[in-house]
Design a protein around this nucleic acid. Structure first.
Lengths: 203, 203
DNA sequence: GTCTATAAAAGGATAGAC
DNA sequence: GTCTATCCTTTTATAGAC
């Protein structure tokens, strides 16, 4: 086989796989792992039913790959912002706005991460990945709150609980916004962050 | 058939149905509608597989009944507190504490309500019930925020968005707490409500 | 590489005995 | 009223032709 053809085939393979992953992200995000049928994915991807098994070993495998992408990206995003310059409050604000901006369009990866974290019906390997990264994310946030408290920007409270409160709130709000996507100026980031800062009248 | 026997049978029937509903609440709450098998429910209820169909027409039917219970109870709870005496802030605080207390134990009905609201895979009838009640709940909250703003307790912002923010946050936090149930003093209700009130240094 | 047809497995629902 | 065994539909996965 000529390398010319080889390369072309590889491109096709990559394109198809990508197509299936994107379709999978959408339907898994919308319907959950158990609620998604293989036929849902291939319909969304506009490919034949059998073809999916040339690219993935099983329905589980697609989900695991998507979950891995979701967690590695979110971890990298958080790490970058948290390890950035700026005061703790500035970094927290930048992180929050970044996450909202990032999930404004589709939010499918957010939904996959969330359900992988919380559902008891996702593939075991995905749950393992989730557990690992969620802990790391919380640690990054905890550290940020600890710094902010030391510098006097944030109110004093168990930094771990503050990190937990922050991510809970974020989950709830993003989730809501996905169903009320027509709303403008929702949520107000400054308003949310008031939970963690000292009293100051709204400017 | 003697009325004596009739009555006894009725009691058995009621007990079994209750048993199945409780088991259903647990597994549907934990695993979602699509992720739950009829066999999961009967195993949890410790009854035989076939028996469930003497009490419910289908898996869908059990879920619908549970969803209805979840929504009617939550609506009644909110309505009672909101229409109570006390200042808007006091009522909001009472409501929040009540919901946390109520979901501290199991939270299965909370989870069922949440997924009925958001999942695309629940039975159609359940989704319809959800839509109806969610709107009503939001209206009650919106009214509470409107009053609180008029009386000067709450910051000024679109009352509908504030209601949405409140319920989003509550969802996120309750959800988190269900996985971190060993945490004491989480969440701090006063801290959450700071989002909606005017600045005042934490007491 | 892609498709259609088919096998294999899982899960919801029913039948009939006790 | 309750159980076990069975049916039947849905869904995952594979085979084989193009």
């Amino acid at each position: 086989m000529s390398p010319r053809i080889d390369e072309q085939n590889q491109q096709i393979r990559d394109a198809r796989k990508q197509q299936l992953l994107e379709a999978g992200a959408k339907v898994f995000g919308e319907r959950g792992y158990a609620g998604t049928k293989v036929s849902d994915i291939v319909r969304e991807a506009q490919l034949s039913h059998g073809l999916i098994y040339h690219y993935f070993a099983s329905k589980e495998d697609i989900y695991i790959e998507l979950a891995r992408t979701a967690f590695t990206t979110s971890y990298e995003t958080i790490r970058q912002v948290v390890e950035n310059g700026g005061s703790p409050y500035e970094r927290l604000k930048e992180l929050t706005e970044g996450i909202f901006a990032h999930t404004a369009g589709s939010g499918y990866f957010f939904l996959i991460a969330l359900q992988t974290n919380t559902s008891k019906t996702v593939p075991e390997e995905a749950a393992a990945i989730s557990k690992e990264y969620s802990g790391q994310n919380l640690q990054l946030l905890e550290q940020l709150f600890r710094e902010g408290q030391k510098q006097g920007e944030f109110i004093h409270a168990d930094p771990f609980k503050q990190a937990l409160m922050y991510s809970s709130m974020l989950n709830g709000v993003i989730f809501t916004r996905l169903t009320y996507s027509e709303l403008e100026d929702f949520p107000q980031v400054d308003q949310i962050l008031r939970i963690f800062t000292h009293a100051r009248e709204e400017e």
